[in-house]
Design a protein around this nucleic acid. Structure first.
Lengths: 235, 235
DNA sequence: ATAATAGTGTCTTTTAGACAATATCAC
DNA sequence: GTGATATTGTCTAAAAGACACTATTAT
């Protein structure tokens, strides 16, 4: 494997960004995976990602890759740094340090087949985590899913999985899908509407099938839930 | 600035680890800072850190630097990855991506003057954050302090600031120092001793000045506080 | 004895969680 | 009408927070 030093005499690394992109589709937490079109791990599923450019900041590289994979610019939802993975043997070609980002997106149109990525597809998180992925992407995906689950507890981040305006039931199904639990609709409603600043009532309602029309809300993206919703206690 | 590609044709980066090392001394949250002995930022205070070696994993680089700066091997306490900083202009010499680690340590003997580092000293976090630091270390330090504050809420990590055996009062002063608040000793005592698995009674007591002897506890390093201690509500 | 700190008990308020009851839609 | 979902209200249990009180030490 290449172990080079750059022109200044410091050890030389390649730097990539890898993306854990999560959404809730069909009441299920799903992750975006690509199929690798080259060695190593040819044909294996992997997280979308790519090399950081020489003059590109890390968040910019993450947004760029996300836009390339999903075909969407100005990705709605949420993008945050997850963690960095740099084991010396994680890429057999050379020393690569990967900065992983976590993106939470509302249900998007199917990934662009015509885009840069090789067949990016949504895969249920449970299934994605039960198959072999390229590199150390299994661990990165696991860390990303766990981060998302944890963050829903104490932030209003669940709304990042919803379109700009949504009902309480929609938000509740997000929590149920991400945590894999059932929540009491009445207590959930009281909790989220009673947290000051979390949800903003638009004054409008929507009818979705039978039942009383539901109020439409908008999310305050920076809201914190205090006290938190707790996976262990809700139900 | 150098903008090189390595021998494989990929953009070449240098990778460093920077350390936010926090402790509680004199009932105050303090951070470990060094003085830079070379350009750029000659003489400016900075976080300890250094280049990752060609075949070294990131956590290993962090432990190595920590040992070099503190003079202690097998650092007690806690070490976790904080975040990664890679703005293209963050180091004027070349493109450097820095993986920051957060270390929480019990009160240590004064940093080794004879060690590798140039005059590593403990500085109260408030003061460290009010002065100019080299590179983007102000932001890294701020992120590290905030991470520590947040983690004390929902984990038993406060014990990482304590020696292996400690009293409830010692732990409480850690929380008070990190959060900068006063906590009710009686309610704090009931909370931490009542959380199953958090504290393990050694059966022994110590006398520290006047007052009833205090029971000595050991911490379960992996304990989670549920429901959490909350900065906003305690007091 | 007095001051200081450790630890327990008690009360009030807040919140979680269970669940009844009402509102408003599709059919 | 029936069945479904939204929303409000009520009750109980758990926990937070205020604070009285007891226990055990140094001085």
């Amino acid at each position: 494997m290449a172990r080079t030093r750059n022109s200044d005499g410091y050890p030389s690394f390649a730097v990539t960004v890898d993306l854990v992109v999560l959404t809730v589709r069909d009441d299920e937490l799903q992750a975006l995976l690509v199929s690798r079109g080259e060695e190593p791990y040819l044909g294996r599923r992997a997280l979308p990602g790519g090399f950081v450019r020489p003059d590109e900041d890390l968040p910019d590289a993450a947004s760029r890759e996300l836009a390339e994979e999903t075909g969407l610019h100005q990705v709605p939802g949420h993008l945050e740094q997850l963690a960095t993975y740099g084991a010396p043997d994680r890429d057999p070609r050379m020393r690569v340090v990967s900065v992983a980002y976590l993106a939470l997106a509302p249900e998007l149109p199917d990934p662009r087949a015509g885009s840069d990525a090789a067949a990016a597809t949504w895969v249920p998180a449970r299934r994605a985590l039960s198959q072999r992925l390229a590199f150390d992407h299994h661990r990165i995906l696991r860390d990303g899913v766990e981060r998302a689950r944890a963050k829903l507890e104490y932030t209003g981040l669940g709304a990042a999985f919803c379109p700009p305006e949504f009902t309480v039931a929609r938000l509740r199904r997000v929590y149920e899908a991400v945590w894999g639990v059932e929540l009491d609709p009445r207590n959930f409603h009281r909790k989220v509407t009673g947290t000051p600043g979390f949800l903003v009532d638009t004054g409008r309602t929507v009818v979705e099938g039978p039942g009383r029309p539901a109020a439409l809300f908008r999310a305050d993206p920076a809201a914190e839930l205090s006290p938190p919703l707790t996976r262990a206690r809700l139900g």
